[in-house]
């Protein structure tokens, strides 16, 4: 019997946040998608301050390439950070998306200290070989300014996934115990706030590599219309995936998706 989770309440999230975490919070009972909310907000308000959008459920949650992200009520966290950018050219996407993954793991570890989290490149978070968290960054312009939206979807206690993903997706906690999602949201925001100023140092890479579950596994990386098969060796200093292909060449990839893994 899955745990009953406290509903998402803005005041509760705020209460867990240190005052210096200067993120403006917006909570919703239901939205199409928090990423879309964030983009709409950017266009209408043209804000230059960091915003967070958190929903109890999403009717049209999505991940990479518009794929559906199952976002039922009561069991998950669906949130997006809206980050105004001064110059997108100074943005380091590889370190950012990998840093986001490590931050979310740090946050989750607070509420789930005994759980073993692992990372699939680029930033999928896994528990027991099932994906429990997806992170998607989107970059667009509104009113002449660049924005990055960081969408985070966490299956906290979600179970009963649709048949087509039931094998691959999983919730972090499946039995007993109360879980405070507001606490988790606050931890994620705090962890992100800690990472953001110095993520370009790449200091998170050491932890990323520890959590990296593809090391020495045979993987298929699909890049556009091509795919590459080889052994995943490590993650490079810019977040790229280092693969040794079957003919022995070692290359780093900064685009594409790992579509198959042989452990």
């Amino acid at each position: 019997m899955p745990a009953i989770n406290n509903p998402i309440v803005l005041a509760k999230i705020q209460s867990f946040l240190a005052p210096t975490v200067a993120v403006h919070l917006h909570t919703y009972a239901e939205v199409g998608s928090t990423n879309v909310e964030a983009k709409t907000f950017a266009r209408t308000s043209q804000t230059n301050e960091i915003q967070a959008f958190i929903a109890e459920q999403q009717s049209a949650g999505y991940g990479r390439s518009g794929r559906k992200f199952y976002s039922p009520e009561g069991t998950g966290i669906y949130m997006s950070l809206l980050l105004p950018m001064a110059r997108i050219a100074d943005f380091n996407v590889g370190l950012f998306t990998t840093g986001a993954a490590v931050s979310v793991v740090d946050a989750l570890q607070v509420s789930f200290p005994k759980t073993v989290f692992q990372l699939k490149w680029v930033n999928d978070i896994y528990v027991n070989r099932q994906k429990c968290c997806g992170i998607l960054a989107e970059h667009f312009m509104a009113a002449g300014r660049d924005y990055v939206v960081l969408g985070i979807g966490i299956n906290v206690t979600t179970a009963n996934f649709p048949a087509d993903i039931a094998r691959k997706a999983g919730g972090i906690q499946t039995e007993g115990g109360a879980v405070d999602r507001n606490r988790i949201v606050a931890d994620v925001l705090s962890a992100f706030w800690r990472m953001y100023p110095t993520y370009q140092n790449g200091g998170h890479l050491a932890k990323y590599r520890d959590l990296f579950m593809l090391k020495d596994c045979t993987v298929r990386l699909t890049v556009g219309n091509d795919s590459v098969v080889g052994t995943a060796l490590t993650v490079a200093d810019d977040g790229g995936l280092v693969i040794e292909t079957t003919d022995g060449t070692i290359r780093t990839f900064r685009s594409g998706e790992v579509t198959k893994v042989n452990f």
Binding site: R64, V93, F96, V122, A137, V148, G256
Partner: peptide, 11 residues
């Protein structure tokens, strides 16, 4: 377009 799992919308 996509790179390092960030999707950029070109407008």
């Amino acid at each position: 377009t996509e790179a390092m799992k960030m999707e950029t919308t070109i407008q």
